[in-house]
Each structure stands twice: as structure tokens, then as C-alpha cells.
Write a protein that binds this DNA or RNA. Structure first.
Lengths: 237, 237
DNA sequence: AAGAGTCAGCTGCTCTAACCAACTGAGCTA
DNA sequence: TAGCTCAGTTGGTTAGAGCAGCTGACTCTT
């Protein structure tokens, strides 16, 4: 029945064509309209919130959610962390997934990427260089994220961008928490530059090779020090 | 605080290294251990259930979930349906996502796929032929799904398989419910056969082309009859 | 008259207490 | 021994009360 309740609320959103951000009926209203107690309404809304379908703001109201992939990040992160602790190569599997998607996309990109995006990517690689040469001696994670996001922006596929972002996010969170991956910032910079140059010169094969090399690099750094797993960092996220 | 509760339960699972299927404390136990009311415990569990982290069985107990991508299917399906109704090309975006992943994977497959899997794939394409020539004159969806699943099985990446399955599932559900896509079963069979043969002969480029052609075919059938959108099939799933 | 502070009213959040429904397993009956 | 019954456990649902965050109108001060 609780399952059914969620479906009825979803149906409400679909049938009324409510866009993201639209206000949903209040809890008392839903109680009456659906003929269930307040508690059941709340449990259904909580589940929908966990799926990103609904957004609840205390003292304000309930709204149609942004339909983002954020809940997927949560689930994926947890799954990867749990698998990692059980000795599975879940982090590597996540990396392979990212590699598959980006490899499959880069071909469509080479040659058709707008000049404006190329300029943004140039600026990002420059920033990477600066950060690598800076006081920390490492490329900031956010810069790497921005590069990969900017790369596929021109495809005009919102879902694609969000899924890639979700994968990146889950991967990064787990890597940061659990594994001490040695980084060579210069190599990182060089590889991103190579990807960018390949895409700029419309060289599909070179672009694919560059992407594979980039991920292959991460993969090696990931598998090699299998013993650097943090034993018990008291997972809290 | 509700957010915090979920995290504490997740932490419980992680810290105790509980594998999928392990029993979790009962609701009264969680009440006591976490110092909150039963209601709050239940709402947190509901949310975790929606994320696939926890599995609740009435009259039996609560267990660590299978960590499958099932909740992602729900979310993705809803998101795609909602987007479709709002006039977005969400179904096309989903298809592009599938195409990107499979295109990126096929290269790693060509040449390294075991003979046993090739045999399975042969049998599946044969079944497609039989179904196309059968009374329905159409390839069963389940057969198509099985083909794509069997294709990537040998990569030994559980996450990959599940994500692909999730994408396939969401796509198929939305397509079935919302859009009347004309099918030519013979073309479908031929394209799957081509993919299989290309992979068998270790011809990477041919395999990539075959995959792209397969998806390109679906894409065309999807974009062309933009007017066949079912106006209001009273979404219920 | 204009601004800031206050309060009433919405909203969602949490708790308590009770009963319903599904499942298990021990004990009883045939 | 085989099957049934019933008590105990677990999650599912309802009800009612009070708490907490936000909004907007009202009032008091300047």
C-alpha cells in the first residue's frame, strides 16, 4: 500500500504536468485527497524525496523536485563504499563505467565542439597547470570536474551531463575517503591537454586514445597500491 | 535531523561490514539505539529503501538491500516520463546515454569475448529471427534485453551490467508507455547479427560502426514520428 | 510616513500510544 | 508423525498532540 501511495503521488505530478519547482499539496491536503493518515503520506514523501522526485522544505511546503541525478550519487557512493569494504573492486568498476561513457562520447565531440567551449577548456587546463605549480602541488578536484563537465556540455544532453557528473562525484568521494591515490599533477595536466588538443584537431582516434590513456592512468594508480585502503575511517557522509 | 538518521543507519551497515541480506536491527531496537521515535526510524528506513540500501519485509524484518540499480530505474523512468510530457526530448537523451556507454564498451569486447558468450549471443539472435518470423512478427523486448546483457557479461563488471540494464529498462518502459515506435523486425535482427559478427571477428571499428548504426536506427524511428506521442495515457507504474 | 520588530498562521517535523497485518515457530491435536 | 492452531515477533497504519521553521500582516517606533 505504501508503494501504491508513492505511485499515486507520482501520478499526480505526471497527470497535472507539474514542472520542477511546482508546489505540491500540503500534507493535510494529501491526507484527505489520498484517504490515508498523515504518517503514511510522510513516509511516501520521504521515499520520493530520496529518489529526487519531490523536494521538501521545512515550514514552507513540498515541491516537485529538480529531477537531478543527486540521489543516484548517494546510492552509488554507498554501494561503492560498501563493496570496497567487502573486498570488491567496486571503485575500479565505477572507473570503468566512467571510462566507457566518456570514450563513447568523445568521438561525437571531436570536430563539432564550439570555439567557446574550447576556450573554456583551455582556461581550465591552464588553471590545472597553475595549481600543479602552485603551493599545494596538486590539481584541485573541482578543476578536474569542471574540465570533464565542460567537455561534454556542447552535446546539449542534460541527462548525459548529470549522469557523468554523478559518476564523477561518487568516484571522487569514495576515492578521497577510502584510498590514498598517488597523483602526479604534471601527468594529469599533460593528459587533459592532450584530450583537448585531440578534440580541437578533430582527430577522433587520437581523442579516444587520449581518453583511454587518461583513465588507464587513474586505473593503474588505483589497482597498484591495493593495500593503501584505509582500514576504518568511520564512514560518515 | 532526518537526514542525519539515514546517515547513522548507513554508517551502521558500513561499520559492521554487513553484506547484502544481513538482518538489520528491528524498529524498536533502532529506536533505542538511535534515541528517536519509531516514526522517525521508519521514515529513515523508507528513504533508504527507496535508495535500495535497505530491504523491508513485512512481518519478517529489515535487511541490507541488494545494492542494485533498481531505484535508479524508478527515478530515471519518472524523470524521462515527466520530461517527455513537458515537451523535452528526454527519451532521446536516454537513448544517447545508452549509445555512449555501449559504444565505449564494444571496443574492449571485440576479440576478447569468450566462446561461450558468443554461443549464447548466437542463440539469442536466432531467437530474434524466429520471433520476427513468428505470429507476432516482432522481436520480443526481453530478447533484445538479453542480447545486450549477454554482450557485456564477460567484462566481469557487475556495476556496468546493472547500469546498462537500468538504462535499457527505463528506456523500454517509457517507449512502451508513451511512444508508438514503428519497428522493422528484420532490420532489428540484421543489426544485432552484425554487431555479433563484428565482435566475433575482433573487428573493433566494424563493431563500433554496428553499434552506432543500431542506435542510429532507433534514434531515427524515435525522432521522426514526433507526433505519435500518446497524449495522456494516465501514467501508472 | 517609513522602517523595524512582533505575532499569528501556515508549513513540515517529531513524538507517543494504540491497533492491524504478515510471518514464524512452538505446542497441541488428530 | 502430520497437520493445525495459536501466541509472539516484526513491520504497517492510524490518531492526536506538541515542536520548529517560515511568511506576511500588523503594530510600534522613529
Amino acid at each position: 500500500m505504501a508503494r501504491d501511495l508513492q505511485e499515486r503521488i507520482k501520478k499526480l505530478i505526471i497527470d497535472q504536468r507539474l514542472p520542477s519547482g511546482s508546489p505540491l499539496p500540503t500534507e493535510p491536503e494529501l491526507m484527505e485527497r489520498l484517504g490515508v493518515s498523515r504518517n503514511s503520506v510522510r513516509e511516501a514523501l520521504k521515499a520520493l524525496q530520496a529518489m529526487g522526485i519531490v523536494e521538501i522544505r521545512h515550514g514552507f511546503g513540498t515541491y516537485v523536485g529538480p529531477m537531478s541525478m543527486a540521489p543516484m550519487i548517494e546510492g552509488l557512493t554507498f554501494r561503492t563504499v560498501a563493496g570496497h569494504y567487502r573486498g570488491e573492486d567496486s571503485l575500479l568498476q565505477l572507473l570503468e563505467l566512467r571510462e566507457a561513457v566518456e570514450t563513447g562520447l568523445i568521438a561525437r565531440l571531436a570536430g563539432s565542439i564550439p570555439a567557446a567551449d574550447l576556450a573554456d577548456l583551455d582556461a581550465l587546463v591552464d588553471r590545472m597547470d597553475a595549481e600543479a605549480a602552485g603551493p599545494d602541488g596538486a590539481v584541485r578536484a573541482e578543476t578536474d570536474r569542471a574540465f570533464h563537465a565542460a567537455l561534454y556540455r556542447c552535446l546539449g544532453n542534460r541527462l548525459l551531463g548529470e549522469v557523468l557528473e554523478a559518476f564523477w562525484d561518487a568516484f571522487h568521494r569514495v576515492r578521497t575517503d577510502l584510498v590514498d591515490v598517488p597523483q602526479d599533477p604534471k601527468v594529469t595536466c599533460r593528459q587533459h591537454r592532450e584530450i583537448l588538443d585531440a578534440v580541437r584537431s578533430s582527430d577522433v582516434l587520437r581523442a579516444e586514445r587520449a581518453i583511454r590513456e587518461h583513465f588507464g592512468n587513474i586505473r593503474v594508480r588505483l589497482s597498484a597500491p591495493a593495500s593503501t585502503t584505509v582500514p576504518h575511517p568511520s564512514y560518515d557522509r
